[in-house]
Design a protein around this nucleic acid. Structure first.
Lengths: 181, 181, 181, 181
DNA sequence: AATGAATGAGATTTCATTCAT
DNA sequence: AATGAATGAAATCTCATTCAT
């Protein structure tokens, strides 16, 4: 009946990008509105506050990752293949949209605590696939190398792009998991 | 000389802690002053601006890390031992002062780029010790697992404290370096 | 004619209530729309602006009061009875709809000044019925005790409801008028 | 040590006046700052929020009134004289500072509820002096005529100023109290 | 007649910084 | 060396109003 929410998507995308580029606190509503080609008030039609927007994006992205990773977790291949697929998927997710990847994995560790209660949790899914007594710890190791390399690439500490390191990353991850290729 | 600057230390320490806890942009001068038990103006006696304080702390911490790591790099032990010592030292540095560790390693500073030009660079030192064509990449892997586990511990995603994971972290790092214990 | 304006009544009633409860400036268009079960735009179908709505309601209520009081003013009973009837009527008007009563009498409108020029003015009607050199002053006294007790009851400073105080209020008012019961 | 708070008084006075003139919600921080000859931020050095300022002024004024009225309540004159003194004092308080008078008596009835718990309460003091079973009710009548006439004078519905009506107001009040002069 | 997204202006509040004390 | 009131700019958010649907 009223206008369709033409700008909602632009607002959320702009926010996501800016949060990753400059940090949540380093991004102003005006920054978001400008990039989205909208006035500042428009944001509040769709989200009650900046904080609300931050959470919404986080929850959405986190759940998105969770769904993808859980789908892989229940494939019928061998355990070892499953792990390799999931690790490759993480790199693939970065390739597809490095902003979402970084928003979920590099930023906002304090939201992580809230969100991991009940939401589809890709970290838990990975740990489950790895199995064994140290699975939580090892899952963190795997995430750690991917995240660190992604950050290093982004900040030009390492040359090229993340995909260039994909095979070596996967090999390293499999080693950490205890199943060398 | 005149009176010693009684509050300078408190200001810098408070700033460091708050920058780690809430991020640089999430920390106000008032926050810092309050934690240091000082008023807002006092900060400007010692630093020209907030940005100046941020840089000063970063440079100081980064150089501190660099000196320690470079000292280890020139010990006379075997290459393999040297690497193990350096990795163990990173974990030890976290144990000694997790705030400095996180300020340097977790806050993904745009400052990192500036500072790595010319300052004593512990990342470069680690890479040199590792050697070989992929040394920069492998150094990032090693940093990645330590950083990630430190963050996971801090945010209670992993139980206990970082030191509890020290042997396993060192073992994993040596594996990444290609020199299993 | 076209369809009847189903929501007009709800909008105006909601506005009236909210203006009394939170003040005109403390009430937003959104507040009104929400209580009326309508969206913000709907209001502008019936009134050109918020200010227009405020005036319309005020004028309507003020005139309504004026008509009732003037009708009483021209009854054929004795002067003393006439006054008593009018005072009783004010209390009765509060009982019938305390929102309208308070909108007209408690919100000390700058509008009052405008509206009293030319509209059916119940304050003037009351003063005329009282008569004598101080009639305007005495009319204010009478209004004052009714308004004050109504506010005190509404804010629970006095127990019960206004009607409980009706006989005593009328007696007090007659005393002020100089015609004790 | 720091600057003395030169502007605090001006800010509070300006706020008080504007709140009375335009209502709390009708008064912006900018309005207050402008009248006080200060920038908007200055207000927040002395009060945490606009609401805080509103409350502070209310509490202060209310208590001020309470102290004065309670002092009169314990004078050694006859009960009848005491009441007359208190009524006269209310009119006098309006003469001395009609803004404070109106801020306490005409505005913000919702704060009244909070404040009357525990603070020096001039309404209660008046009721106590009046005595008898209906003392609370009668106190409201007395307040009602003073408030109403003060508002009528302010909005030019009655000519002159409140003081012009002082003898007649006191006489009317004594009548309501049941002790005609 | 009604919707509700979007606007543009303005409201409240925060904050790095300055400066009189 | 330190205080803390005050500034000025910017941040978050609200709101009356408009307009495509």
């Amino acid at each position: 009946m009223g206008r369709p929410p033409l700008k909602k998507g632009a607002i959320e995308r702009s926010a996501l990008e800016l949060f990753v580029e400059k940090g949540v606190d380093g991004t102003s509503i005006r920054d978001i509105a400008q990039r989205a080609g909208v006035t500042e008030g428009a944001l509040y039609r769709h989200h009650r506050s900046k904080d609300d927007l931050v959470r919404h994006l986080y929850l959405q992205s986190f759940t998105h990752f969770g769904e993808i990773m859980e789908a892989l977790a229940s494939t019928s291949t061998s355990p070892s293949d499953r792990i390799r697929l999931m690790i490759a998927q993480l790199v693939e997710l970065h390739a597809r949209d490095s902003y979402v990847f970084r928003y979920v994995l590099v930023l906002n560790h304090h939201l992580l605590k809230e969100v991991r209660v009940g939401e589809r949790d890709f970290v838990a899914a990975l740990a489950r696939a790895i199995g064994g007594p140290s699975s939580d710890f090892i899952a963190q190791l795997v995430l750690g190398i991917i995240v660190q390399v992604s950050v290093a690439v982004e900040s030009a500490q390492l040359p090229g792009k993340l995909a260039d390191y994909s095979p070596r990353l996967i090999a390293a991850a499999m080693e950490l998991v205890g199943k060398p290729l």
